[in-house]
Design a protein around this nucleic acid. Structure first.
Length: 641
RNA sequence: GCCAGUGUAGCUCAGUUGGCCAGAGCAGCUGAUUUGUAAUCAGCGGGUCGGGGGUUCGAAUCCCUCCACUGGCUCCA
């Protein structure tokens, strides 16, 4: 048994000496390949490329082109960061330092000294300096006792705590240069390939994600094998900054915030309102087609309403505190959800099974107290409007209704041009059931309904435990913004609990009282958040059917104002919306201003156009599209919408 | 809420060992210009330097506190 058989991803097999490493094998294939190997997948498990293989195995060599290759590279970069920190700040203690989606971080405790972004360039330099040593990442198995002794000597209580949770016999250390870390690995062969490093920011992070525990300093960074790749990555981050909805929202005058009105309370300016109303009109029309009934309910409700719904018990302390009537001292809460009000509407008079399903829809504005540090542009606010609806139906109707909601949601997502989204089934945390209300049986029924319906339409889903609402499981639509952050937008929830708490009933064909099932759903989710993500998605260049101003008429000189006004009237009558720039500015200036405001079409009128009764059309971001009549232009806009 | 950072005119920023009346560009207003595909010229107005308190002969600058914002963490009905 001095040979082992290695099976490659393409099925090819070859014999190698026992204890060959992935690196040896790569070298056998080609030296160029060996230079690029970062790690290896051995029987489905990611290993160090330098770790001896002791038996027959399936082997895939991992390079920068593989996701696991990248994450190994970044994980090793985190160790390099730690080595640099230890060199620069002796005595620093380390928490954890994993790779993340795009890069890596390390949590450190620097004692009395605090790190700021100004310290980062110095640390980067140190990392690059250490990387040039091409220090080998050396794996070594240690006993738990030895590991404890090492970190006790070093005085790193965080590592000791991590060790506490590990079993003897499974503990490994990795060392590169002078830095030794408790780590299960794997790592790249040596620090050499880490050619470009950028430390992005420092942030606070609780030890083990627990807010009652010590706050450490988290240093985020990203690294690459080539400087060019780093530059490209940084350019991408720049582009994301340009698309930031907070910046574009201010520039395009869509919305604002006011210190006097209050943090987290968005104020919609005319142009933002125009977009929002078009979205609402679109949704209202869709809902009308699908048998929804619009309702309107007040912005506050008595405390008792939320005691009944369970919201009081769950969020009473963490919500805006009640408004009280001056004489009687009655307590009213700002509504954090629309469902309790809608339950009251359902209960307004006895229902027959013939009435069901009942679909109650409302663009309902709700207010939730969010922690001050959580507020973020339009995506995390304290007052927002949901495109909410509640469907009350019989148990038999649940699946059909769910499928219809799914269809509506997909329609909306596609209409707005979102191609990449994830459907997430959010279930309760089985280890933490007391966080939720309702019986196990009801939860299981609700979960089954969601899973079955998504399977039926073949929707690809991921499942997350602990992400359910306190009253029921959800199907959440997650959409990525320009910074790669994932936002929950639309949501569909199957709820057996609230109907019970509100004692909702219908009389069945058997003349007996039955409990309806409730489906909560909001395809946009929150208008604020949706528009925030939409702004970043389209970089402020809204679809023609949504944009506040479709065109701007730009006159060459005010000799052509009369014609421009005629044109405007004609375009109005053709159902287009736009503005007339009548300033005594040069045409270049008017074009520039319209370009910056991202107005889709610039209609240039001068001598030629006035005499030919045409317009010269310029498309924002593209340029001259030639001249045409107003009708031809209107038709073109129609076709492009 | 927690850690780190930021806050000067509508916007972007200068003013960085405490020291004459706090500056610029853009935007705004007024006037001139009547212009052919990304910024015409000139003049004028505009800031209790985020709020409050303190140190000092003197504070945009140093200290305390509150507010808002940024990056994360925790949270998110």
């Amino acid at each position: 048994m001095s040979e082992i058989t290695i099976t490659f991803p393409d099925g090819r097999q070859k014999a190698y000496a026992i204890n060959s490493t992935a690196m040896d094998i790569a070298m056998d294939i080609s030296e160029g390949l060996a230079r690029n190997v970062l790690a290896a997948k051995v029987n489905g498990e990611v290993w160090d490329a330098t770790r001896p293989i002791t038996q027959d195995a399936e082997l895939a060599l991992l390079t920068w082109r593989d996701k696991e290759g990248q994450s190994t590279f970044w994980h090793s970069s985190a160790h390099l960061l730690a080595e640099a920190l230890e060199a620069l700040y002796p005595g620093v203690k380390f928490g954890i330092g994993p790779s993340i989606d795009r890069g890596f971080y390390y949590d450190v405790d620097t004692g009395d000294r605090s790190l700021s972004t100004e310290d980062l360039p110095k640390i980067e330099q140190k990392m690059l300096e250490l990387a040039r040593n091409k220090s080998v990442y050396e794996r070594r198995e240690v006993t738990k006792a030895d590991a404890i002794a090492y970190f006790e000597e070093k005085g790193d209580e965080y590592k000791l705590e991590l060790l506490d949770g590990l079993d003897d016999g499974s503990i490994t250390f990795y060392q590169q240069g002078d830095f030794v870390d408790l780590c299960r690995g794997p790592h790249i062969p040596n620090t050499g390939p880490i050619k470009a490093v950028k430390l992005l920011n420092v942030a606070g992070a609780y030890w083990r994600g627990d807010e009652t525990r010590a706050q450490m300093t988290r240093i985020y960074g990203v690294s690459f094998p080539k400087k060019k790749e780093l530059d490209e990555h940084l350019a991408l981050l720049e582009e994301a900054k340009k698309r930031d909805h907070r910046k574009l929202g201010a520039e395009l005058e869509l919305f604002m915030f006011s210190e006097k009105v209050g943090a987290g309370l968005p104020i919609w300016l005319p142009k933002g309102t125009a977009i929002r109303q078009r979205l609402e009109d679109f949704m209202k029309a869709e809902q009308l087609k699908r048998g929804y009934t619009p309702v309107i309910t007040p912005h506050i409700g008595k405390k008792d309403l939320y005691v009944t719904s369970g919201h009081y018990e769950k969020y009473g302390e963490d919500s805006f505190q009640p408004i009280t009537t001056p004489r009687e001292g009655e307590e009213f809460y700002l509504k954090p959800m629309n469902c309790p009000h809608h339950c009251e509407i359902y209960g307004h008079r006895p229902k027959s099974y013939k009435d069901l399903p009942i679909r109650i829809a409302e663009f309902g504005t709700v207010y939730r107290y969010e922690q001050s540090g959580e507020l973020h542009g339009l995506t995390r606010v304290r007052g927002f409007t949901q495109d909410d609806a509640h469907i009350f139906c019989t148990p038999d109707q649940v699946k059909g209704e769910f499928l219809d909601v799914l269809d509506l949601t997909m329609h909306v997502v596609k209409k707005l041009g979102f191609e990449n989204f994830t459907a997430q089934i959010s279930l309760r945390d089985p280890k933490n059931k007391e966080k939720y209300i309702g019986s196990d049986e009801d939860w299981e029924k609700a979960e089954a309904a969601i899973i079955e319906a998504t399977q039926e339409v073949g929707l690809e889903t991921v499942t997350e435990l602990g992400e359910a609402a306190f009253y029921g499981p959800k199907l959440d639509f997650m959409i990525q913004d320009a910074l790669g952050r994932s936002w929950q937008l639309g949501t569909i929830q199957v709820d057996y609990n609230l109907p019970k708490r509100f004692e909702l009933e219908y009389i069945g064909a058997d003349n007996e009282a039955h409990r309806p099932v409730m489906i909560h759903r909001a395809p946009f989710g929150s208008m604020e958040r949706f528009i925030g993500v939409l702004i970043e998605h389209c970089a402020g260049k809204f679809p023609l059917w949504l944009t506040p101003e479709q065109y701007s008429i730009l006159t060459i000189s005010d000799k052509y104002l009369d014609y421009a006004k005629e044109l405007k009237t004609e375009l109005d009558s053709l159902g287009l919306r736009g503005i007339l720039d009548q300033r005594a500015e040069k045409i270049g200036r008017k074009i520039r201003d319209a370009e910056v405001k991202k107005i889709p079409f610039m209609l240039i009128v001068g001598e030629e156009e006035a005499s030919a009764q045409k317009v010269s059309v310029r498309r924002q971001g593209e340029g001259d599209k030639g001249s045409m009549t107003a009708e031809e232009f209107a038709k073109m806009v129609e076709e492009m919408s």
